[in-house]
Design a protein around this nucleic acid. Structure first.
Lengths: 219, 219
DNA sequence: ACATGGGTTGAACGCTCGTTTAGGATGCTG
DNA sequence: CAGCATCCTAAACGAGCGTTCAACCCATGT
């Protein structure tokens, strides 16, 4: 964060400082004074540039989301549609941005909510496209699947610190990305179930759902 | 929250109020005064019973985690090992507790971290047991798989509000639990990929991983 | 009757917060 | 040179925070 400060305007340094602070300490837990110290400016300058602490937060939201949209858009433009790492959620976006996104999704951020919805729509589109290419099966409820899948991927992002501790491995190191992408693909491809078992369990679940429905309608 | 207040001691009402406030407003964003109002007591009583705001938070952590341990322990004691909804992560635990757990996992809570690690260990145990019964395949890296799977499930919990908005359906209603459990099972069982496609992608990922390793060692 | 002690409160303290204000430094434009 | 906008700061303000404290209420035990 501090290494390239010299090249950035004070306004950009403030934004970057907030980008790092908000996910670490929370919005209320982060003080304007702390951001100012990180950015090497006075607290008054923070307000001068962003109007208020809340304004700074909105600016961070907009900045991060715009950057992520750009990176994802470029990835989709290219031929990486069939790249397993895209399906595994391992798009290559700078760590502070992803960390901020994960945090923003756990707060009442309108901007983050809009991005989430956008990503669900995009996932539905991608899966339908993949189905045309014979690679995937959209199924009758592709939207629910997409939303759940995205929740899982974003959730794994939020849980990153726990993954690191539990696996004793940095989830964003080359080694970590490989191990986690592999595990994600294995999980998503049903490799964890014995042959025939997955289908049996899905059928069992359908029965359980039907029973639950009956119990509920019986009171 | 307020409906059964009459039966609870002030100490319990304070804890329940904090249990609801912390996930909604964050730790720093929650004021002792707000908790006191919710519980129908004075701010001084909060400190009297829990020593400090931080002490109240620790008490909430301990309470929620103990309750979850109990519920999960009972579920494992019974024969629900093969119940798909267990694998799908839909243990039936009261909503405020799950909401609190999801929040605690996104903060630097020692207690939540310990619970996460515990759940990973337990997942490894369960999968190995299921392998003995011929239902699952532990694989060479069952611990990574378990940790990633748990991150996804907990993450989906944290992302619940986004799921609700995106699917226009309460994830904790009967309807929502059914739809999401079904989608989760479908995702985890590989139903989203065309036959043979999943294996092809896993192989492609292995190749990609190998290439990445080479690029990195070449500088 | 009277002390004891836990549950509870209102009022206040000291502190830190986000924000405001008045103005200093710097550099561009005429 | 003067005029003026831009970037920036030091100091201070009022509000709200977590916490403290002296005292009150009211069971219970003697």
């Amino acid at each position: 964060m501090r290494s390239v400060d010299g090249d950035l305007t004070a306004e950009a340094r403030i934004r970057d400082a907030a980008l790092a602070r908000f996910p670490r300490d929370g919005f209320e837990g982060t003080t304007v004074r702390a951001i100012a110290v990180d950015a090497g400016v006075s607290p008054a300058l923070v307000v001068h540039h962003y109007g208020s602490k809340e304004g700074l937060r909105r600016a961070c939201d907009a900045y991060v989301i715009e950057r992520i949209r750009t990176v994802k858009g470029e990835a989709i433009e290219s031929d990486s549609l069939t790249d397993p790492s895209v399906i595994a959620g391992g798009f290559q976006i700078a760590e502070p941005l992803m960390r901020y996104l994960g945090w923003a999704l756990t707060t009442d951020s309108d901007a983050a909510a809009r991005l989430f919805d956008e990503m669900v729509d995009e996932s539905v589109r991608l899966i339908r496209l993949a189905e045309e290419h014979g690679a995937m099966v959209a199924g009758p409820d592709v939207r629910t699947r997409s939303a759940v899948m995205l929740s899982m991927q974003m959730g794994a992002l939020v849980m990153r610190d726990h993954l690191r501790r539990s696996l004793d491995m940095d989830p964003l190191s080359t080694e970590g990305i490989m191990a986690i992408s592999r595990a994600t693909m294995e999980i998503f491809s049903g490799a964890m179930f014995a042959p025939g078992q997955a289908e049996a369990m899905r059928e069992a679940l359908e029965v359980a759902i039907e029973n639950t429905r009956k119990e509920h309608s019986n009171g």
